[in-house]
Amino acid sequence: MLNWITDTISSLGYVGIGLLMFLENLFPPIPSELIMPLAGFTVARGQMQFIPAIAAGVLGTVIGALPWYYAGKILGTERLQQLADKYGKWISISSKDITKADRWFERHGGKAVFVCRLVPGVRTLISLPAGISGMHLVPFLLYSTLGTLLWVGLLTYLGYVLGDNYELVDEYLAPVSKIVVVTLLIAFILWVIRKNMRRYS
């Protein structure tokens, strides 16, 4: 993975950064925690400029968020409610739960998109509920861009500062991503258990 990322950035430059960050949003196992620090290291070596590198990463990320956003748009709340009523009983999700989640996202959607863009493990996934809830494209792009700018800027700066040791960024942040995903999974399982206990009590 590292060799492929390195070769892509070396051969394609800023376009390579944008392409990798685009793919990272479609296929989360490709880590931004490795792409942008490598870009920062390349900047430190004088082979790239700092601002264009960040701009390429932000652009690739925001464009990469759109397929998930439009997938959510196509699925939509009504379709999701139908699926929940039909199959949701297996995981204790009903159309009412979908409606509650949709209302919550209407109130906090912008903040949710912004904050989740800074959280490893969920930064890609937030585009899906944004689309499902019908969040307008302009605010979605605005909050996505702001959150992504902070995230990409931080990773690039860390790579610039760490130099040859830029891989340490991924080494320390990769476990964080796993912890976040596992925590969310456990929280969901506990929520399902509690709903089932209330139903049969």
Rank of each mutant, 00 (worst) to 15 (best):
W4T: 11
T124A: 04
V180P: 09
S201G: 12
E78S: 07
A65P: 09
L155H: 07
L173V: 14
L12K: 08
F114I: 06
T77F: 03
G121H: 02
Y70R: 06
D164P: 13
V180K: 05
L83W: 07
K73E: 11
G153P: 08
E24Q: 02
K111I: 14
R194F: 03
W104P: 00
P37A: 00
D102W: 08
G153N: 05
Y166T: 08
A187H: 02
G46H: 10
S10M: 13
G159T: 07
V138R: 04
M1N: 07
L173S: 13
H108T: 10
M21C: 07
C116N: 13
I93F: 06
F22Q: 04
L20N: 02
T183Q: 04
W151V: 01
L185A: 10
L185I: 13
S11F: 13
P120V: 03
G159A: 07
W151P: 05
Y14D: 10
M36L: 06
F105P: 15
Y160F: 15
T99W: 06
K178A: 09
I93V: 11
V119R: 00
V15S: 11
L38E: 02
G134D: 04
R123E: 01
G110V: 12
Y14R: 04
I186V: 11
P139V: 06
W104V: 10
G60V: 06
M135K: 04
L150M: 07
V115I: 14
W104Q: 15
G109E: 07
T61I: 02
M21L: 14
E33D: 07
P29G: 06
M135H: 01
T99V: 12
G76L: 02
A101G: 05
V62G: 06
A84I: 08
I54M: 10
L12V: 14
M36S: 01
K86C: 08
N165M: 09
L38Q: 05
I98T: 00
A112P: 08
S32D: 00
M135Q: 06
L26T: 07
I179G: 12
I132A: 01
L184I: 08
W90T: 13
I63S: 09
A56Q: 03
G46Y: 11
Y70P: 01
K100C: 02
I9K: 06
K111T: 10
M197N: 12
I126H: 00
K178T: 10
N165T: 11
R103Y: 02
M36I: 03
S11Y: 14
T77W: 05
F140P: 06
I30T: 10
L19I: 10
V115N: 05
G153E: 02
G163A: 12
L141C: 10
Q81G: 08
Q82T: 14
P175K: 00
V122A: 03
G159D: 09
Q47N: 14
H136Q: 12
